[in-house]
């Protein structure tokens, strides 16, 4: 019965192919359909990816906090897999935000890094994710790890509005909702929707993988116990 539960359906490869096609389509839109920006030129195309990863980077911590809250209230360990998966995908997006932002800044502002409000807030968010994973690696007990990380994710998510306020009150030069050509706006929207779907897919896949790992460990322990009893 347990082994039956481990099967996640035959539609998995189809999902992978579908998302690979979707990402290829978005890549085509970004590189071929969207016009080059007048002043920035080709490097402006980074923005289509940067906006989507930045949004999901922040959203990942909120999802991890929501899963943490559900874990603490319902006492269901399964929520920890969702929380961990959300934090991992969120951290990946947060890292991509810093890299793509830095690449863009090098062309636009002639520097890889500056203490600009949005860059600062993105870096603080990244360090909160790093603290979350550091905490995870410091605890061996699964239940304690889940509970303590849920608390840190909630506190981290509660601090996001404060971080945003603290950094926005500096005078920044990061562009906010600039004027855009309708085609560019359409490509940005398509890129945001498809990348968000892709990250949601990654989140579900990682969560299923964590659940399977948890079940395999439980089965292995049961098997070892039964072998010990027989001997």
């Amino acid at each position: 019965m347990e082994l039956q539960k481990l099967k996640c359906g035959r539609l998995e490869p189809l999902g992978g192919i579908l998302f690979a096609a979707l990402l290829a389509g978005v890549g085509f839109l970004i590189l071929r359909v969207a016009p080059a920006e007048k002043t920035m030129g080709e490097v402006q195309r980074i923005v289509y990816v940067h906006v989507a990863v930045a949004t999901f980077g922040m959203f990942g911590m909120l999802l991890a906090a929501a899963a943490g809250l559900a874990l603490l209230v319902r006492r269901d360990q399964g929520w920890d897999h969702w929380g961990r998966a959300a934090a991992e995908v969120g951290w990946l997006c947060s890292t991509l935000t810093l890299i793509t932002g830095s690449l863009w800044a090098h062309e636009a502002w002639n520097t890889w890094w500056t203490w600009e409000p949005r860059l600062t807030s993105s870096l603080i968010l990244w360090t909160i994710y790093a603290g979350y994973f550091l905490l995870r690696s410091s605890i061996d007990n699964d239940r304690q790890q889940a509970r303590v990380c849920a608390i840190l994710a909630i506190v981290g998510a509660l601090d996001i509005p404060i971080i945003t306020m603290a950094t926005r009150w500096f005078r920044g030069m990061h562009p906010v909702s600039p004027e855009m050509d309708p085609t560019m706006r359409g490509v940005l929207l398509a890129s945001m929707v498809s990348l968000t779907c892709f990250f949601a897919y990654l989140l579900v896949r990682r969560s299923v993988q964590l659940q399977m790992g948890h079940r395999i460990r439980a089965l292995r322990q049961r098997l070892l116990f039964e072998q010990g009893v027989r001997m």
Binding site: I124, T127, I128, A130, G131, L134, L135, S138, I139, Q144, V148, I151, L152, V155, G156, D159, I162, I163, M165, A166, T167
Partner: peptide, 23 residues
């Protein structure tokens, strides 16, 4: 309190608190 329940608590207080306290 979180760090107190873990094995390497000495370093963790600063490492966990600094990102939260940066604002």
């Amino acid at each position: 309190a979180i760090a107190n329940s873990l094995r390497s608590r000495g370093n963790l207080v600063v490492l966990l608190l600094l990102p939260l306290a940066l604002p």
